[in-house]
Design a binder for these strands. Structure first.
Lengths: 113, 113
DNA sequence: GTATTATGTTGCTTCTAATTAACATCGCTT
DNA sequence: AAGCGATGTTAATTAGAAGCAACATAATAC
């Protein structure tokens, strides 16, 4: 993602940690299946170097590459649970509080009942 | 991710679906919290246009941007479950079958006992 | 109804993700 | 211990991601 993007150049600790963990796990799954990087790459339609980047948790690599690796390993299903609105308790509470409309916010909204 | 990458240009159906779902969910979480795209973007250190891309599920956008959005919304925790080796039954089975080593594969491996 | 804010869209620029090729190194396998 | 395959590393190239500006449209607040 060209242009010095703060979040990619120096991600918050949580993001970096999540990335490295995801990369390690993809590598583990690949090794268990005895696939060379080059073969996984071929299935995804990318070069082997991109697979190596993914396994290192490179932040600037496109998300489709990461999801593609999960897909090629048969592990994409677990993405269904991420950010599920039904499980977002904080979000649900906020929605109940305000009117459930679009964004707007700004300064003092007067519905602070 | 510059250079025509097959997986990003025309992702497999499952990947595209997962991406659009993720984008929609990020949008939903943002609206519930009454944050404008520009404000979420500011917290992440990117421009508002990138947030719009994420909510549309753009495949070529860097993974750090997606994870950064989840992070800024307090939803990053759910990434812990993705590709968990303990839950990869297929991988575990394969590991038990072969020697649990590195990759190699190639043609006829002779350990077909 | 009017002002204000949010989001979408277009065009342009800048910087880099991903490719390829060549070589080094590390691990298996025999 | 020799050979082969997998992975790491470097360098050069190129097409595109992300930034920014300006304007249009849509939705909310007053």
């Amino acid at each position: 993602m060209p242009r010095p993007t703060k979040i990619a150049a120096s991600p918050p600790a949580g993001v970096e940690e999540a990335l490295e963990r995801l990369g390690r796990r993809i590598r583990t799954a690949r090794l268990r299946r005895r696939l060379p990087q080059a073969e996984l790459a071929a299935r995804m339609g990318v070069s082997r170097f991109v697979v190596a980047d993914v396994e290192r948790g490179k932040p600037t690599t496109g998300i489709a590459v990461y999801l593609g690796a999960l897909w090629a390993l048969g592990l994409l299903g677990q993405m269904r649970e991420v950010a599920d609105p039904d499980r977002d308790e904080e979000g649900k509470a906020l929605e109940r509080a305000h009117s459930p409309r679009r964004a707007h916010r700004r300064g003092a909204l007067s519905d602070d009942f």
